[in-house]
Each structure stands twice: as C-alpha cells, then as structure tokens.
Design a protein around this nucleic acid. Structure first.
Length: 831
RNA sequence: GCGAACGUGGUGGAACUGGUAGACACGCGAGACUUAGGAUCUCGUGCCGCAAGGCGUCCGGGUUCGAGUCCCGGCGUUCGCACCA
C-alpha cells in the first residue's frame, strides 16, 4: 500500500469501505484495469453508453447500466479475453447548456466540475474501466474529429443545407430534431413546438434507409430494439403515380372539359400504397407547403389558398394533430386521373405532410378514413372500387368509417381490372400505368433526413466558411478544430441564429480560398453527432494526429458487445450505424455495422413508482455506497430483477445481497484445509459454476446471484466450517459482481495475482452429476408425489418405484392404460 | 388508432425447446441470544382444511397423458409512434 492514510481491512469483520478503498488504490497502482490495446490476446470490446455528466451526479440508472456491462466485461476477461471497457462523457449539448443557464454558470466551467464528480462516483463503483482512454466530447481534442466527420459527409454530398420548416422551441429558443419533439411538445421543457423556416444543415440518412433496414436482419440485437428501428425507418411498398395538370387557361373554372387534351401539362406525383384503388381517386391533395401549389392555383382561388397556407405555416405542430377536424381549400385546378381520364379537383390540406412521400396524395374517399372524412366535409364524390363479401359495385360506402381494411375484397368499378383481388390489382395496375409512363412501383421510407444544425452555443462549430466571392468553403482539415470560443453571453435568443453570430471577432475569418474576409458558420452541430462515432475514438483516444488509428480500429472494432438504454433504440443507434456506413463507403473503416451485439437494459423504478426529482424518490448512489458498500450495491442492483427488464428498487432489498457478502467473508476467512472437501457440497459447487457460467452471458444476473446464494446455504448448512476448496471457486464466481471483496478474499486465500487474472473455475460435469434424483410421479396428469430413484432409471424401474410407494399407489386404480416416461424428469401413469 | 412488451404469493421475482409452479430475496410469524435494538442466528411462510385432500400462474374456451408456457376470444397494465397516404 502506498497510501498510509488507508487503514488495512480487519480480518474478523467485513468492512466494505476499507476493502473497497484498498482495492481501488491497488488497481490504480498496478494498472489492473489497463488494457493492452496493441498486444492483448483475443480482444473483446465491451461498450456501454456513455453518460451525460449532469450536475446532479450519477443516477442509479447509470450505475445499473454500467454495472451490468462491467459484469459482462469482467466475465469475458475471466474467460481469457483481453477486455477493453472504456467510458467517457457526452458533455456537449442542450442538457448541459440548459442546466448551466438555469444556475447561472458557464458550461465551459461547469462541465469539468461535473466530470470530476462523475469520475469520483464511477471510481467508487469499482468499474473495470481503463480511464486512460476516456473521451470528453466537449474537448477540442475530440470535437476536432467530430468536425472531421462532418467534412467527410460534406465531401460526399451527404451534408446539405436547405431552408426547412423546422421544429422551434420558443422556450429553449432552438431548433429541435423531429426526434426531440414528443407529442408536439419539446421533450426537454414541455413547451408546445412551433414551426419556423430556417436554413438548416441536414445529413442524407434517408439515402441509407434501405441498408439500415436490411442489416437489421443479421444483427444480434434485442428484438425490441430492432423492431423500434424498423418502425422508425418505416418501409412501405407502393407506387408513384403521375397526374397531369392542364396549364392555366386550358381549363377555366366553371367549364371543366373532361375530354380536354392535355398538352405541355404540369404533373403532380403522388405516392400511394393502394394503387389498386386508383379508379376511386376523386380528388388530389397537396401539402400546403408543396412547391407546385402556386403554379396550379387559379387566379380566382389564389387569395383563399394564400390565406390557408399562411395559416398553416404559422401553426405549431400540435394543432396539426389527428383530433382536429379536417381543413383545406380548393386550388381551382384539376388533374387528370390516369386511370379514368377524368379531371379531378386539386385541393390543399394540412392533413397531407410535405415530409412524407411526394407531399401529394390521390384521395380515395371510398377506402381511406382520412380521405373519407375530408370528402364528406367538402362534399367531394365518393366512389366504391373495392367490394368485400356481401357487397357489390353499387353498395354505398357507409357514412361512418370508410373501408380501410378492405384488403380481402375484389376490385369493382375499375374497368378491365374488375374482379381482381387487392394484391392482384396492385400488380396489374402498376404494370399498366408503367406501360404508358404514368406510374411505377416505388419503395418509400418514413425516415427523414437528419437535421444536425443547432442555433445554440454548447456544441462543436460546424466547420464551414462562407465567402462572398468563392461561396461556401469547408474548413481545411489542417485548420481543425474550429475551436468553440469562450463567450460570456451564450444564452440563446429569439433571433433564430446562434449566440456565436453575435461575435464578429470570432466569425469573421479569411476565406481559405481567396483570403478575403469571410464568415464562419455560426451554428453548432447536434449532440447526437458527437455520440454517433465515439466508439471509434476510444481505442485511439491517445492519438492526436488521427481520428482513429487504422490498426487499432481493425483490431478492436466493430464493438463486440454494446449495452445501453432502449431510450436510444432509434436515435443514437441509428445515427451511429449511419455514420459508420458513411465511413465505410469513404474507405475509412472496413465494416459497416458498428455494434455486432446490442442488448437493451431495463429501467429501475423505486417502490413501484418512477424516480423523479419532483417526487423526491431519487436514489443517491453515494449514500448507498457509504452505508452498504459498492459491492453490495452492485450485487443488489443486479439481483432486483432481470437485467433486460429492469426492476423495482425496494429500499430494504439490499440487505439480502449484503448478508450474502458477509457470509462469503466469514466462509472464506474461516475456511480450513483439513482432509477432503465434502462430496455433496462439491457437487453443488460444480452445478453452481455451470449455472453462473450459463447465466452471465445471457445477462441473467439475478438468477446467477440466486444460484450463488443457494450454494452459500449448502456451504454453511448446520453451522459447518467450509473447506477451502469449497469456497475458493465461489470467490471467483462472485468476482464480476462484487470485485473488491473478491480481490480481498482471493488475496487472503494466498494468491498474489488479481482474481481477474486467475481465470474462471473449471466446471466438471462428472462432479456436478447427481447419483439419484427425485422423479416426479403423476397419475392421470396430476402430481401425486416424487420417488427417489437412480439418475439413469428406466421406465420399468420408475414404474416399479412409483407403485411401491403406498401414497402414490392408492391413486392407481386398476391396470395402467398408458405410461408416459420422461427420463430424469417424470413418469405419468394413465389409468 | 397502430406497433411492441407484459399479466405468477403480502412484495421484487424463479420456472431451459410443454414435464415437480412459487427457486432466490424482501416482508411477515415463531423461537434463540442480548440491558436494549429497526443487530445477529434458527425454523416456518401460495390459499382453504384438524387431517386426508382440494384449489391455485388476469378471465373464458381449446389442443395434449400433461399447459404459467402452445392456439382462439376477452379484460387489464406499461412503453413507443401518432393524419406516413
């Protein structure tokens, strides 16, 4: 021990504080948790989602997540892998900035303090983290490369700028990604979100939708997470259909000539998944923001259309919700239905969204609830084109609820396609439309491009310069990082631009091309970009010259195991996959999926209720570690429920695991070496080794702990003093869960090396096998008792044993009709 | 509305591909030891019943020698998404 202030632990009582201090110091001194990244055998990258270092300190949820990963990582190490278990801080972003604003501190000053506090708490938790490779996304060493990632996308045409209707939070005074809007309100502050039109940077993630979806088929991820991603990507098969629009003047308002020859017509493209219903398309609807609205609107309708557009443009997202009655206005224009050749009116309505499909739909009020509601309100024609059993072409469409679920029906009123099923109709009509270039089969995705710019301060400046003479220039790589300046007035305002735009001394720079004064981009990038590549940085965190070293990356990536919360099931995980794919395409890495295996852990609630500051029921890990020790706390967190489901933190529950560790201490410190270990106990030991070894890789930590507790009972039954050979392997089994006490006891048992370098105890199937078993006996499927028989008993032997037992025999009336025998499990006698 | 997960003692939860329901733990009860303890240890603890036994995994059907597990129909809880054409 190098630190004389640390009292050595006493032998007679288990003193977690002393034990944990001693081993945390010794691990640091010996480099026990250091990973040999260049040379270690069988590399295993055990990644956990890094935390945002809040001022409140570590949350139990963080510890639950990290402990689960730590156990997995330590177990892999015990299996002979060189395990890399890094951790860092997601320190940029709105969370940090908002909190700094709230308490009137500067994020650049607050963040290091928060990180120091996290570091202290995480060290106490006994994680096997190699802190030499910690990253901090708000450090220029890191965000230099975040900016580099941005440039990779820009160079490949995957980053672009456009003026877009964006979600604007009037409270946070910033643009939000669609994903940060929950039910029309800002996910941070709950303020209803408004629409604004701003120039924004986007990443073309939608170009990757197909690949992002397809790879899910082979990734070893939690099913819930995969499903969430699939839904988010939202693939739908359908058709794009062209509707021709006579140019103005060809068709006057009140004299629709259904036989008008359409020359030089404009066209409106619509997306539909139900092209089979095209004969029932009685009008078109454009999103109010649709670029063709101006072009098609007739002079007579212009004022009304303009008014409607203005109204919806100002509207926040909330009032464009389902519950609202349909609204819309007629443009005065008509389009030709390519199936019927009739002219149908073109409307605009806010129930059609510009972001999806083509921003325009063909409305089929006979077979779509929304179109039906709209058509009834505005008295547009409703035509039946699908008839289900008991209906025919003339059956009227009921007033309430159009037939959306008519997929079992057959086409009617559809010309030569009458009689086809819906599926046949889709295929035939697409082919027919394609034949005269009026349509084609397409696949559409819900996934929108990723808006990555933020009009905020606490993030990496987007590395772009605007020059009046040369246009937009990217910051040359040699000039990275574009350092975020320290400014006092970092508060966002209502201007729609970043606080950095108030600092001319920062944003005016020479143009990298011509050298004349030019202007920096003043927006910063989304926090999700910081976290979309951090796993690539960890192994190379000590390299200042490259974002990630080729050899280290080849050796350590993709990540072998990633554990994190399901709240990041879509955003973070999807963005990370996307960035990795882009880097693959750019030739920077040789894999396109960053996380081979992902498991989502559950959430911890407390005494049946969600933890929240307002309820005052938030668990303070420091207090628990002080009172019970990190080992007991870790073990309890893993014991209170299935790891992938989470569980209920009951305040008194920790005493169980604590007693278990105390008993472990007593058993190990009192173990003797006289004679041979007990046969029955050794049998139980080997069963326990097998069970724990099976459970840990499945993250079934709660049952692994239960098995060890059971073994502890056997070990201490009737106040016996255990033999050393009975206890020593248990110390190894416990070590991933309670690493400090395991090290201490391992040392006391006479070992010099760390228990984590001692390997995993061997499991011997011979030793684990029982000679006799309790065979279940059923009569007519009802449990009537058990009989003790040899493990290898056959049906005849089992039947004999069962009938010999009077308590069972009395239920066997007459000759058995049938006997079902499951070797080693049960016998069922049917009479 | 759509999608996903789930429903087991007083509580958290066990139960591998249908095969001894309630492991393990908390709590509770009784006892031991203590000046005392909300400490520690031992035993008990699904429900009804003195017992034999019966009943039990949200409810109702079904398949099976056998169902917590599989199928059908309800009810309920939680979490996502939400006018996505």
């Amino acid at each position: 021990m190098t630190d004389p202030t640390i009292e050595p632990p006493r032998a007679d009582v288990y003193d977690p504080t002393a034990v944990e201090r001693k081993w945390q110091a010794r691990w640091a001194e010996r480099g026990t948790n250091h990973t040999d990244l260049a040379g270690g055998e069988r590399p295993f990258y055990a990644l956990m989602m890094f935390p945002y270092p809040s001022a409140e300190g570590l949350h139990v949820g963080n510890l639950f997540a990290f402990t689960g990963n730590d156990i997995y990582g330590r177990f892999q190490r015990l299996q002979g892998h060189t395990v890399f278990e890094p951790l860092g801080y997601d320190a940029f972003g709105i969370h940090s900035e908002n909190y700094a604003l709230k308490i009137g501190e500067h994020p650049a000053e607050l963040t290091p303090k928060n990180i120091a506090n996290f570091q202290r708490q995480l060290t106490r938790a006994g994680l096997m983290v190699d802190w030499r490779y910690a990253v901090n996304t708000s450090s220029p060493d890191y965000y230099k490369w975040t900016q580099w990632v941005f440039l990779q996308l820009l160079e490949r045409g995957l980053a672009y700028k456009k003026k877009a209707a964006v979600n604007w939070c009037p409270f946070d005074k910033t643009v939000l990604a669609n994903e940060q809007v929950e039910g029309g309100v800002c996910e941070r502050c709950g303020t209803p979100v408004e629409q604004r039109f701003l120039e924004q940077w986007f990443f073309r993630i939608s170009d990757y939708a197909g690949r992002l979806l397809e790879n899910l088929d082979w990734l070893d991820w939690s099913d819930t997470t995969k499903t969430a991603q699939r839904n988010w990507i939202g693939r739908s098969e359908g058709a794009e259909v062209r509707f021709l629009v006579p140019t103005q003047g060809e068709v006057e308002d009140d004299e629709v000539d259904e036989n008008a020859v359409l020359m030089e017509a404009r066209e409106i493209r619509v997306f539909t998944t139900r092209v089979d219903t095209i004969f029932g398309a009685t009008y078109l609807v454009l999103a109010p923001e649709h670029p063709l609205v101006d072009a098609v609107t007739t002079p007579a309708q212009r004022a009304e259309v303009e008014a409607y557009r203005e109204r919806t443009a100002k509207q926040d997202v909330v009032s464009r919700k389902v519950t609202k009655e349909k609204t819309g206005v007629f443009t005065g224009a008509y389009a030709q239905n390519p199936a019927t050749n009739t002219l149908i009116p073109i409307w605009i309505a806010d129930y059609v969204l510009m972001e999806y499909g083509t921003g325009a739909i063909m409305a089929v009020p006979g077979h779509d609830e929304r179109d039906h509601e709209f058509a009834r309100k505005f008295e547009l024609p409703i035509v039946r084109v699908v008839a289900s059993a008991g209906e025919d072409a003339d059956t009227p469409i009921p007033d309430e609820g159009a037939h959306v679920h008519d997929v079992d029906g057959r086409l009617v009123n559809s010309g030569q396609f009458d009689g086809l099923t819906v599926e046949e109709g889709k295929r035939a009509i697409v082919a027919w439309l394609a034949g005269h270039e009026a349509g084609r089969a397409v696949i559409n995705y819900r996934l929108h491009d990723w808006c990555i710019s933020r009009q905020r301060y606490w993030g990496p400046p987007i590395p772009v310069i605007y020059c009046d003479a040369c246009g937009m220039q990217q910051v040359p790589e040699k000039d990275l990082p574009v350092v975020l300046p320290f400014i006092k007035d970092f508060k966002p305002d209502d201007s729609g631009v970043s606080p950095l735009a108030r600092h001319e001394e920062w944003y005016v720079v020479p143009c990298p091309e011509c050298g004349k004064p030019a202007r920096r981009e003043t927006d910063v990038s989304d926090t999700f970009l910081d976290s979309a590549w951090y796993f690539l940085r960890y192994p190379s965190a000590q390299r200042a010259d490259v974002p990630f070293d080729a050899a280290l990356t080849a050796r350590w990536l993709p990540v072998d195991s990633y554990i994190g919360g399901n709240e990041h099931a879509v955003l973070h995980l999807l963005y990370s996959r996307f960035i990795t794919m882009v880097l693959k395409d750019a030739g920077k890495v040789d894999f396109e999926e960053p996380f081979t295996k992902f498991r989502a852990h559950g959430l911890i609630i407390r005494e049946g209720a969600k933890m929240s500051k307002s309820k005052g029921n938030v668990i303070n890990p420091d207090a628990y570690i002080n009172d019970w020790g990190a080992d007991a706390f870790r073990t309890y967190l893993m014991f209170l429920g299935p790891y992938e489901q989470g569980g209920d933190f009951q305040d008194k529950g920790i005493v169980g695991p604590k007693r278990f560790l105390e008993n472990l201490w007593r058993s190990a410190t009192s173990a003797h070496t006289d004679g041979a270990p007990d046969g029955a106990v050794m049998r139980k030991l080997h069963q326990t080794i097998r069970k724990v070894g099976d459970d840990v890789p499945r993250l079934s930590y709660n049952t692994a702990i239960a098995a060890m507790m059971e073994y502890m009972k056997a070990l201490r039954a009737n106040d016996r003093t255990p033999h050393r050979d009975e206890v020593e392997p248990l110390v190894q089994l416990v070590s991933p869960f309670a690493p400090h006490i395991a090290e201490e006891l391992w040392e006391r048992l006479g070992h010099d090396e760390s228990v984590f370098d001692a390997g995993w105890p061997a499991f011997d199937p011979e030793l684990a096998a029982e000679d006799t078993i309790a065979l279940a006996v059923q009569v007519n499927g009802k449990m009537r008792g058990t009989v003790t028989v040899p493990r290898t008993v056959d049906q005849a032997g089992a039947l004999a044993a069962a009938t010999a037992d009077p308590a069972i025999a009395k239920f066997i009336t007459g000759v058995p009709k049938k006997v079902i025998f499951v070797p080693g499990r049960l016998i069922n006698i049917v009479v």
